[in-house]
Design a binder for these strands. Structure first.
Length: 387
DNA sequence: TATTAGTCAATAAG
DNA sequence: CTTATTGACTAATA
């Protein structure tokens, strides 16, 4: 119906030879496993099938996409989903072709468009297309109903009928229904055992990161043995930590949207289905709100090294001993102050936390919350309370 | 080969 | 049940 922004660039994208057009459903299978095939909802599904009759393959659509504001986009998506009691799993699997966890992450911390690769943009383009679909909600609700139906059916048959209902899956069906009812997929295959690092281990790693974000193999080995972790775990931890820290920076980078506006304007309701589109706004620094963040320990560390002793009593943990972490839940604003401390160079050479500067705020989340509260409060329209 | 970007999938939290 | 977190893995890059 309407194209947001003009997109007159990108004429020749030297590449885009593109792989096969079916990304999600082509999971690389592992040697032994084989889908758990939880019995239902096949993860690697039949593809979302996005575009209606648009002759464009999503890949093309993405390549031509105009520069979406991922923040605004995700905000709207979250709004639509919550307002209609639609879950991330359903949305992710049927619209984006991603799992629930990925959707959660994406919606909570979208990276700015310009930092995304072609592939990384895909989910956002799909979100946009979805938002444009007039029947998006009905369609998802239908799917939800279908799933529930299937679920009920399955449950019914397994209770009344003492027998399998499996649609004969590839999985080896050994002993089934041995004693108590159902055991769908006798996952005799080990689950996977997730490694869970203890708080003290994490702290040690963070401390190490602080000193050297890119530890040498030697250091890694050292850490691994000291903490009693596999080398690969330590390596992975650094990879993930760097990646996630970087992402935090992104969000606080471009999203200073301190949009003041909103405030007053007593009458204007603000919650109705669609919301203003707020295309690109010229981010002029409003004012930094002071929201604190969940933990944000990333920056927290900044202090520990040098710094004056005075300011090291900030919240989170005493830097010392492993177990000492004071469990000060939240510390309110003060925490932020600690961070801003100059504490210039640390003992290590090379690049040191230049990150200085302001602690960010995400007043946006508050807006979101407020919106939902208002919504819930004035809900006279009991259009199905979920369930 | 070393890193990054993007996800998955287990499981913690709500 | 739903959402959030996070170690591990894969493909893409430097």
């Amino acid at each position: 119906p309407e194209s947001p922004l003009s997109s007159a660039e990108e004429s020749l994208n030297g590449l885009v030879g593109d792989r096969d057009p079916l990304p999600p459903p082509a999971p690389s299978l592992e040697p032994p496993s084989g889908e758990p095939s939880g019995g239902e909802s096949q993860p690697g599904t039949p593809l979302p099938l996005p575009g209606p009759i648009t002759g464009l393959s999503i890949q093309e659509t993405i390549a031509m996409s105009p520069e979406l504001d991922t923040y605004v986009l995700t905000k709207k998506v979250k709004e639509v989903l919550t307002d209609n009691n639609l879950g991330q799993r359903l949305f992710g699997e049927s619209i984006l072709g991603l799992t629930q966890g990925s959707v959660s992450d994406l919606l909570a911390r979208p990276k700015p468009w310009h930092k995304l690769s072609l592939k990384g943009r895909e989910p956002f383009v799909r979100m946009q297309l979805w938002l444009q679909d007039p029947h998006k909600v009905e369609k998802l609700m239908d799917m939800k109903r279908l799933e529930k139906k299937a679920y009920l059916k399955r449950r019914h048959s397994s209770l009344s009928d003492g027998h399998s209902v499996d649609g004969g899956l590839a999985g080896p069906d050994f002993l089934q229904s041995s004693s108590p009812q159902h055991q769908r997929p006798p996952q005799l295959y080990q689950k996977k055992v997730r490694v869970v690092l203890g708080p003290e281990e994490k702290e040690a790693l963070k401390r190490a990161y602080q000193e050297k974000p890119y530890p040498s193999p030697k250091t890694i080995e050292e850490l691994a043995s000291q903490l009693n972790l596999k080398t690969s775990t330590v390596i992975n931890w650094f990879h993930n930590y760097r990646s996630r820290i970087r992402r935090e920076l992104f969000i606080e980078e471009i999203q200073a949207a301190g949009s003041a506006a909103a405030a007053k304007a007593g009458e204007g309701d603000s919650c109705d289905g669609t919301e203003s589109d707020g295309t690109v706004e010229g981010r002029h620094g409003g004012h930094r709100g002071a929201s604190e963040d969940r933990d944000m320990e990333a920056g927290v560390e900044a202090r520990l090294s040098g710094g004056s002793p005075a300011q090291r009593n900030c919240t989170t943990s005493g830097s010392a001993g492993p177990g000492s972490s004071s469990s000060s839940l939240f510390s309110l604003p003060e925490a932020c102050l600690c961070l801003s401390a100059p504490s210039s160079h640390t003992s290590t050479p090379a690049k040191n936390p230049r990150d200085n500067t302001l602690r960010k705020k995400k007043a946006a989340n508050l807006n979101n919350i407020i919106h939902r509260l208002e919504k819930a409060a004035g809900k006279e329209d009991p259009s199905e309370w979920e369930f």
